[in-house]
């Protein structure tokens, strides 16, 4: 039990995918303009990450491993991820057209979100079991959502601040992300995994 909790703490805070491992920066910078949008994106990503880490684990353990096809892991993971993302896109399109519109290109881009493939591959390399894989994916997603939402709330404030013209937009966003990463260094060595 403690082990599972530690996995969550580790992925959410200590080894946060965005601020510590710097994975998934594309949607982090791209979809953090508005709080509502980022909440939608966070939910979509959480869904995709959890489901894809589950699916990729199943694919790897029950299809690739028995046949000794481990070398196919990357290509089959990409396949899995693409399907999950496509599926999510359809669901979002149906349930929230505006979110669909606002997420725009970032929704299909979850496919190429390195965090997703990263989670799948790290699951394998860490030799995580079934539950651990799901938790690892879920924790990574929660960590991503957590910083994305906080960051978007902060960006709404920065957007109306008197930022020098040359630093407006992504530049100050990157600086903020850097300062946030600095703050997250406080969690260093919190959990050793």
């Amino acid at each position: 039990m403690t082990e599972y909790l530690l996995i969550l703490v580790s992925t959410i805070l200590v080894n946060n995918f965005v601020l510590v491992q710097f994975l998934g920066l594309c949607p982090f910078m791209g979809v953090s303009g508005k709080l509502e949008t980022s909440i939608g994106m966070a939910m979509a990503t959480t869904f995709v990450l959890t489901l894809s880490s589950l699916c990729s684990y199943l694919t790897y353990t029950y299809i690739l491993q028995p046949f000794g096809l481990e070398y196919l892991q990357t290509i089959s993971f990409i396949l899995v991820i693409a399907v999950v993302v496509q599926f999510t896109e359809m669901v979002v399109h149906k349930t929230s057209p505006l979110l669909y519109r606002v997420l725009g290109i970032f929704l299909p881009l979850i496919t190429t979100n390195c965090a997703v493939l990263g989670v799948a591959l790290q699951n394998i390399s860490k030799q995580n079991g079934f539950v651990e894989s799901i938790l690892y994916g879920f924790g990574a997603a929660v960590g991503f959502s957590f910083v994305l939402i906080l960051f978007s709330a902060m960006r709404e404030r920065i957007n109306v601040a008197d930022v020098p013209t040359v630093f407006k937009g992504s530049a100050i966003g990157m600086i903020t992300a850097g300062l946030m990463a600095l703050a997250f260094m406080g969690f260093t060595a919190l959990v050793q995994i």
Binding site: T59, I63, L64, F67, L72, I75, S76, L79, V83, F87
Partner: peptide, 14 residues
Amino acid sequence: GILVLLSLIFGAIL
């Protein structure tokens, strides 16, 4: 074969 199988399954889902 495995890849084709996977693709078929996923295609059906989609």
